[in-house]
Simulated scan of single mutants.
Amino acid sequence: MNSFCDPMIDLNDIAVTYGAEDQTKSALLSIRLSIESGEWIAIVGSNGCGKSTLAKVIAGLIRPSSGHMICHAESSPAVQLVFQNPETQIVRETVYEDICFGLENFGIPQERIELRAMDALRRVGLDGRKYDRTATLSGGQKQLLNIAGCLALNPSVYVFDESTSMLDPLSRQSVLHVVRELHRQGRTIVWITQLLDELAWCDRVIGMEEGTIVFDGSKQSFFYGDEASWDRSAPNPCDRLGFVPPFTVQTARVLLASGYALRPLPVSPDELSKAVGAL
């Protein structure tokens, strides 16, 4: 896990309201959140809780109704967003043309475009499909192409808004592999999901409900509550938000309730295996 000391993004009393006059609806309410450089935060919550709105605020696609955001990134663009639907961001007919589109829009010199485009395609495993029509790609390959488009621009922060939710398991693992590599390279990741097994790789969990942050802490605290006084019968943030924990966590909870001291508290299958093996 990376160590953090420098803020990358500060959100100060962010509110987003839709509509006009007496027909307004609040999507975000007084959000205060600091994201450190190199951190992987996961944002979870039920549909309509404000996760996607928060993603768009961080990516600069929505202007807050009140409050302000400070981004300390030196790169330009500072933030890039990968949407849920792989079709959303594809605008050109071929793989190579599509990845060049963003580079051209950001004024990258022509002599550097091919190098950056091909490097990004190589990193997601699509360099051999440079001239393929985007319509022939699978859903997972389309999402990898979207990520490659972001990679080519080299932002400091990557925001993924449920980017694996429409993918099959194999494609989902391909996307997660690329994102984990980005994190190892020190990039800041904002990962929005309802697939709680994906929290295994994050550094910190943000739980949202009705436009507000109701939890901000470690993934272990999210799934198990207070580690120092863990009680199977006590509510924890995961249960309170109405989520079913991953099978790994369910198994670990049963073992803990039976008197087995699992340390550290496992979230991934590998962590469970190691914790059990150490008993």
Score class of each variant (00 low, 15 high):
P7V: 08
A42H: 08
V214Y: 01
T134P: 15
T164V: 07
V267N: 02
V57G: 12
D6I: 13
T188M: 12
D168P: 09
G259E: 06
P169I: 05
K130T: 15
T94C: 14
S34I: 06
D270C: 07
W230G: 00
N2I: 12
S268W: 08
M208E: 02
Y18T: 02
L256N: 01
V175C: 02
D197N: 13
V44N: 05
T134I: 11
E111N: 15
P269T: 04
P264C: 00
P86N: 01
S171P: 11
V214I: 10
V254D: 00
P77I: 03
G186V: 08
E87N: 13
W40V: 10
H72Q: 13
W40R: 12
Q84F: 03
V249G: 02
R263H: 04
S229F: 04
V214G: 05
F4C: 06
R63L: 14
V254S: 05
V175S: 02
T251R: 07
S258T: 00
E104H: 13
P155T: 03
M8A: 13
I213W: 02
I9S: 09
S233P: 00
S30C: 01
E198Q: 10
C238A: 07
L196T: 07
A275G: 02
W191M: 03
S163H: 04
S34W: 01
L126K: 07
G125M: 11
V157Q: 12
L167P: 10
G38Q: 04
Q84S: 02
A148Y: 03
M208T: 03
M118S: 10
I35K: 07
G45E: 03
G277P: 04
L144A: 08
I9F: 11
D98S: 13
D127Y: 12
R32T: 10
R232E: 01
A234C: 00
T136A: 14
T212M: 11
M69H: 10
L279W: 11
L28V: 07
I9Q: 09
A42W: 08
K274P: 01
F101P: 15
E21K: 14
F215M: 02
Y18F: 15
A73T: 05
T248P: 09
N105F: 09
C150R: 02
V205N: 04
L29T: 13
E104N: 11
R63I: 15
R172K: 07
D119K: 15
Y224C: 01
G48F: 08
R184F: 00
D168E: 08
S26E: 09
D197F: 01
S65R: 06
P245I: 00
L151A: 05
T188F: 12
V159Y: 09
I147T: 05
K130L: 15
L262G: 01
R122G: 10
C238S: 04
V44G: 04
G67K: 13
C5Q: 14
G125D: 14
S174N: 15
S52H: 05
V57P: 09
T193H: 08
E181K: 13
L195C: 05
K25F: 13
V124N: 07
G48A: 09
I99A: 10
Q110L: 14
I192H: 11
A120E: 00
L167Q: 05
E162N: 06
D10H: 13
F222Y: 07
L272A: 05
